[in-house]
Amino acid sequence: MAAFLRSKCSSVGRTLMGGLGNNLFGAVNSSVETVSRPSHCDPIFQQIRTFIQMRTNLKVVDNSGAKRVMCIQSLRGKKGARLGDTIIGSVKEAQPRGKVKKGDVVYGVVVRAAMKRGRNDGSEIQFDDNAIVLVNNKGELIGTRVFGPVPHELRKKKHLKILALAEHIV
């Protein structure tokens, strides 16, 4: 009978019934409602920062000619690529008369990732966006310039040329 009443009542009524009864029906229900409500108006605040996986769009931060690349394969791990990893991508947007054109399948090194990455000193680093630098299958750079900040962890991954060309190393 109580269950029937609960189902018929409104959300407020359900919460009250749950509070009055021995079970936590109402309490659970109310907590779910609060979680589902958007926490903040800012879209950045709501966005979940995760791995670079298939269909992730990345910004290209060199002068190879590509503007935007979509990841089609992560070359490391089961979940996806992170800061300093190599991926395979398809060029979705390119500048005219560039070294690569739209539709090309290219390799790229992730130089900035919005997902937090632990450092050797125990702190964590996080960037504003996901960005890559295009390389060939041997790991040599296609472009001749790298824009924006890059992390010094790339030294461990043997991408010394990227660090040499970078504007800022953080």
Partner: peptide, 17 residues
Amino acid sequence: TVYPGHGIQFVRNDAKI
């Protein structure tokens, strides 16, 4: 004060930390 091994470092695209 942020001691070693604590906290998060956020880097903006203009390289401000």
